[in-house]
């Protein structure tokens, strides 16, 4: 058995016909990937992190009737530092989202996010509310979305199986968490609560909008007064 170097990854090295049956060309990554992914996919530990209604269904999923232990996921860790998966189970509010991002940043890589239910995916029925974030994917990378309001335990398990399939497709050779050049890569800025939720990546847009408003106000200065401040 020959083990080719990692660079010659794809197995298109020409092999003479006479030895074709005796030679198996592969690379370490290809050999390790199934083992690596098998062990990872069967021990996904979620954070104990319930937000709203969906959390109840999440607990039901973990309890005896649906039994997440069959997937090796029953170990709900109370600390993000021991967890692999964050199930965003419920409505994400503006007051809560800084905490969620902070928790995510504390999780060790590889980390996954599963957005459970309509609220977490896109705001859900509460989207129009003033204190609701319209989708956690505005702040964190989401791996799997599970629609439903709330998704039944079986729907959640379906989502978790989808996550396992995603993990199966990852490779140890290309996994970003092993060849990080920048320590802060993969971390997300924690939003700030000002007069409304401030995403620190959007400061420029906010300043532009403010400038635009100022310009308009100056232009309309001769008229009565600028548009009333809401509230």
């Amino acid at each position: 058995m020959t083990v080719a170097s990692t660079e010659a990854a794809n197995g298109d090295i020409p092999v003479p016909d006479e030895v074709a049956n005796n030679v198996f060309i592969t690379n370490i990554a290809k050999l390790l990937d199934p083992v690596y992914n098998w062990s990872r996919r069967n021990s996904i530990w979620p954070v104990t992190f319930g937000l709203a209604c969906c959390a109840i269904e999440m607990i039901c999923t973990a309890s005896s009737r649906y039994d997440l232990a069959r997937f090796g996921m029953e170990v709900f860790r109370a600390t993000p530092r021991q967890a692999d998966l964050m199930i965003i189970s419920g409505t994400v509010t503006k007051k809560m989202v800084p905490t969620i991002v902070r928790l995510y940043n504390q999780m060790p890589e590889p980390r996954y996010v599963l957005s459970m239910g309509a609220c977490a995916s896109g705001g859900g029925p509460f989207k129009e509310g003033y204190n609701v974030v319209d989708g956690i994917d505005k702040f964190l990378p989401v791996d799997v979305y599970v629609p439903g309001c709330p998704p039944t335990p079986q729907a959640l398990i379906n989502g978790l199986i989808a996550l396992q399939e995603k993990i199966d497709q990852q490779s140890i050779a290309t996994a970003p968490w092993y060849n990080k050049k920048d320590e802060t890569a993969g971390l997300y800025p924690v939003p700030v609560l000002g007069p409304d939720l401030v995403d620190l990546r959007q400061l420029d847009i906010i300043r532009q909008e403010a400038a635009k408003y100022q310009a308009e106000a100056v232009a309309a200065d001769t008229e009565a007064e600028p548009a009333a401040v809401a509230g």
Partner: peptide, 25 residues
């Protein structure tokens, strides 16, 4: 989607002319 009609692409709204100073409340 409602966020398509929002300049920030999110469910946020600031007081008109509000500029973030960095040391928010």
């Amino acid at each position: 989607r409602a966020e398509e009609r929002n300049p920030y692409g999110k469910n946020v709204k600031y007081p008109p002319g509000w500029v973030p100073t960095g040391d928010e409340y």
